[in-house]
Design a protein around this nucleic acid. Structure first.
Lengths: 228, 228
DNA sequence: GTGTTTTACTGAACGGTGTTAACCGCCGCC
DNA sequence: GGCGGCGGTTAACACCGTTCAGTAAAACAC
């Protein structure tokens, strides 16, 4: 013990070995720090997700998160610039799942009409199963859809772009009577309206929302696929 | 001056005159007080309406109202139980105008389909012209739709009941294929979706909202008025 | 091993919110 | 003329997001 690390002259092989070992120890230490840092960030995120699911966006307070993860509230600011940045991180995760859900729904369907139907149903189902997330995404913070520049905006509403593409394949779309974006707006508004009501108005329960979804999709698809 | 009011024995005619005059003075004083009270309540309401229109519901702050009307914030509590009660009062006014707008739209139209079209357009127009009110009514505080017992609830969404009645007159409704409430849900969700997006997402501007409204109404009405 | 710097984290505080409680002056009544 | 109640205010509490000075420990340098 207490073996003092000797100073070595440059070029000395043992010095080289020692310096590489030092570098490796240093790298390992940094990696350890980075991992711990990442873990804390993730524990913040999971606590925030829990609070969001339990009590909505209002329940996601810095102090509540801190209390849940056993840290001081100010610690969160070492990982997120402010509460908005944290909510945005939550929203990014929610949008990722949203995109995945709609994507698989669109893939499994055959044809544009079936695709629209599948995506519409998946849209409302997502809202029903993640009401707090949906409200944060499209009701409480719709500004986030357009935040942080158009490149990221595209990724967020890419699912809606897919919807527009499908709508463009409809006879109405091909005839130029109703271009894809207009039809997509209508479809989006329809499912969003149902989702917003279902997640906000107590009397609009799940069964009612699903019936309305099916009916709305049938009516709109029929209209888009019917010549004037 | 300084004429002492003499005490009168009961039955004395001058006493009777004096007492009635006293009563009238008292009543006038009470009325004055009541009027002043009512005026203050109304000034609170107008200040709150202004703040709502200027900065949304978040801007409707007790202290901001107080500063605007030249009173202390706690004075508001002499006229409203709490902030929720004040917002509810704002909402009541908004719902009254909403009901009027939709009512006249429905009256002026002839036939169920035209009525639905007119109400739908009026619905979105109301949202576009009173975005803060609309968001408070249907987006931020949808719980108010069902608050305070079913009797008041009915008055609030009576317009939607009229919509359901019109929808029930459609061929689809008469055939029992799609009862009125289901069709009304679909119609309501469609216009609400457009209104919510138009008042929340910046890129969803007025022209886009109106085009989507017309298209959605045409498609849905066509679907409801077309046999299977 | 020792001194220094960097990092992680905290407690206290500020300004804002809704809301409550104690106080105070004035008007109308007796 | 005294006095009660009403209208109104000030001070305070609890909570919110956020900032800042400070501290303990870890990493680093020699």
């Amino acid at each position: 013990m207490a073996r003092p690390r000797a100073r070595h002259a440059p070029g000395d092989s043992s010095a080289l070995a020692a310096s590489t070992r030092d570098a490796r120890v240093k790298a390992a230490s940094q990696a350890r720090r980075a991992r711990r840092r990442q873990q804390l960030r993730e524990s913040i995120m999971t606590a925030a997700q829990e609070l969001l699911g339990e009590g909505g966006a209002e329940a996601v307070t810095m102090r509540a998160i801190a209390e849940r993860i056993g840290y001081s509230a100010t610690t969160i600011y070492l990982h997120f610039e402010d509460r908005d940045a944290l909510l945005f991180a939550l929203l990014d995760e929610a949008f990722a799942e949203f995109r995945a859900v709609l994507g698989t729904a669109a893939e499994e369907a055959e044809g544009a009409a079936a695709g629209i139907r599948a995506m519409g149903r998946a849209y409302v189902r997502f809202a029903l199963e993640h009401p707090a997330q949906y409200r944060l995404m499209f009701v409480q913070r719709p500004d986030y859809l357009l935040a942080h520049g158009p490149e990221e905006t595209g990724a967020r509403i890419e699912s809606l772009g897919a919807l527009a593409a499908l709508a463009g394949e409809s006879p109405a779309g091909r005839a130029g009577r109703s271009d894809g974006t207009l039809a997509a707006d209508v479809l989006w508004a329809a499912v969003h309206g149902i989702a917003a009501l279902a997640t906000g108005v107590a009397m609009f329960d799940r069964a009612r929302a699903e019936r309305a979804t099916d009916e709305a999709l049938e009516l709109l698809i029929k209209g888009l696929w019917t010549a004037e």
